[in-house]
Computed example of a mutant assay.
Amino acid sequence: MEKITSIIILNYNSSKYTMGCIESILNSSCENYEIIVVDNNSKFEDFELLSKKIKSINQKNIRLKRNDINFGFALGNIFGIHEAKGEYIFVLNNDTLVDKETLTILYSFMVSNPDISLSIPAQYNRDGVYSPSFAYLPSVVNQWLGNGLCRLLKPHEYVDRKKIYNSPFQVQMGSGASMFFRASDYFKVGGLDPNFFLYCEEEDICLRMKKANMKIFFVPDAKIVHYGGGSTIRNDEIEIEFYRSLFYFFDKNYNFASSTLLKIRFIIKEFLKFCRKPSRFSLFFSILSKSSLSRSLRHRQEGNKIA
């Protein structure tokens, strides 16, 4: 592997976001990188626009790959990662902008800390407001008793997500919008799971890293802007897809008792929402009856409903 950073960017009908992201990378202080853009079968007009703009940049370290169907987040990124040559892999949402020093900070941090497998930059929204980019892995205890109680019992594991920090520290998991992997460790745990179409990919790979005693660190000096929702249209199908991924994540990573308790907790949450808003009945019923991974949107490919 070359001592460079391979940046993987997924595009789906959102080339304007993708080009903004690429331009922020080109304007960064980092020079040792490659950009691999994977188009997830966008509309022809969007792909052509993206293709022309990338060609106009005329740099050998930017490559564009196109899938013939929308494979979703995990598998779409996997195709890009398999093309990567770098010692580090930066999975980056296309609806982000990297700060000028971010790539340099993350690269230097990983070089200086060879025992760390994944680093997560700080995220800010389009208005410059801090938005937490690290979170807690789901457990029976934190889902039934709350993160507040867990923070009292284990303050080092449940660091307050709302505060702004100045120094790096270990976290349970990071946002899938910006994950800076040590490539060797990424492959050691098997990489992203292609069974996930839209959600829970980051929970899954972070949990596998935790089980392998790998360290995940939040690096606050590295900053990105994350617009959020750049290629996803929120609707009932997307919400159901979240539960398909979530329930698969529970079944895959937890024993039967824990998985069942976690599912029940989320079903109760949705039932309470339905009680407050009866119009959510069809959504609640679908979560109960259509949450199998075999019903994933990947298999239906309904155009702009898929991201």
Rank of each mutant, 00 (worst) to 15 (best):
V219E: 05
R63E: 10
N13S: 12
C30R: 11
A74R: 00
D95G: 00
R66I: 02
N67C: 15
V171M: 02
A135E: 00
Y248E: 10
Q301W: 05
R161S: 08
Q59V: 03
I267V: 13
P114Y: 09
S175D: 06
N304R: 00
L137H: 08
N166R: 14
F90N: 00
D185Y: 07
N40Y: 09
L26G: 01
N142R: 03
K263M: 09
F266H: 14
E203I: 11
N67T: 15
K305S: 04
D99A: 03
D46T: 11
M173C: 10
R265M: 00
E157F: 10
V129L: 10
F281P: 14
H82L: 11
Y254L: 12
F181T: 03
R66H: 09
E157Q: 13
F284V: 00
N235D: 03
I7N: 05
I306E: 06
L92N: 07
S292H: 11
Y158D: 08
V141M: 15
G146F: 08
R234Y: 15
G230H: 08
Y88F: 03
D185F: 10
Y33P: 08
K65T: 11
W144R: 12
I233S: 14
L293E: 12
T5N: 02
R161G: 05
R63K: 13
G76A: 07
G190M: 06
A122H: 13
Y243T: 04
S117V: 01
I287E: 01
F187I: 14
Y243F: 15
C30Q: 14
F197G: 11
L283N: 07
G72C: 07
Y227K: 10
Y17F: 01
Y124E: 01
K252S: 06
N32M: 10
V91N: 01
L288R: 12
Q143L: 14
E270K: 07
F249R: 08
K188G: 10
S259D: 02
S231N: 03
S292M: 10
V225M: 11
N235I: 06
G76V: 08
E157A: 11
S184P: 03
I224K: 14
R208V: 01
A135V: 07
G230L: 02
F256D: 08
S245C: 15
E34K: 04
V98P: 06
K85Q: 07
E23T: 12
I233D: 12
D127F: 11
Y254Q: 12
I35N: 06
I35V: 08
G146I: 08
V111H: 07
R63Y: 13
H299V: 12
L152M: 12
L198D: 07
Q143P: 07
N125S: 14
D160Q: 06
S184D: 09
C275R: 13
Q59Y: 07
D115R: 06
G190F: 08
C200A: 04
Y186S: 05
N32W: 09
Y227E: 13
Q172F: 03
D185R: 00
M214R: 07
D46C: 04
S259M: 05
K65H: 13
S175T: 11
S42A: 01
D204T: 09
Y243S: 06
L246W: 04
A84Y: 02
F285N: 13
E203K: 15
K60Q: 15
T18P: 05
F271H: 06
K277M: 14
V219W: 02
K100A: 13
T102V: 11
K162Q: 13
L192S: 00
E83Y: 10
Y12H: 15
